[in-house]
Design a protein around this nucleic acid. Structure first.
Lengths: 66, 66
DNA sequence: ATAAAATGTAAAATATAGTTGACATATAAT
DNA sequence: ATTATATGTCAACTATATTTTACATTTTAT
């Protein structure tokens, strides 16, 4: 998997740290870090929670065209 | 979790059975059935694969407004 | 220059996504 | 009526998402 820069930049736009997001959605900082670095494959519920915190949709953060 | 009727209807629109989708994305029929019935929380990679088979996006099938 | 906060990463443990096999019911076709 | 296909569900298993603890490096603030 490749890095999720959309997540990283949406997070920056809200001026939140990985830990801020992690706390807001109820996972650990390492989980957010791993998602940003493309180290794994989160569940849809977690993706949705992250999107809600960032005022984004699934397509905004987790969809790649084609 | 609640039923995923968007998935069910997108599948119907393509005239595919649960098993057809399962084979196309490389999981078992039970997994697709469980997702449609809201029995669990699939990974984003699986959701993405399902969307591609159905010519839909994540927002179409897995996003609920607000 | 130093301290504090943020990030990258790793190993061992736990929770849960996804498999396998099986059976039962419902529809659709012959 | 009977056969075949599609769906719902369950229990036991395996694979992997996520946690916990820990340490190292980078970035930001003082």
């Amino acid at each position: 998997m490749s890095k999720n820069l959309k997540l990283k930049s949406a997070r920056a736009a809200k001026d939140m740290s990985q830990k801020n997001i992690a706390d807001a959605v109820g996972v650990t900082r390492q989980t957010i870090n791993a998602i940003e670095n493309g180290d794994y494959n989160p569940t849809i519920n977690l993706c949705t929670a992250i999107c809600r915190v960032l005022d984004k949709t699934l397509n905004d953060i987790f969809w790649e065209e084609e």
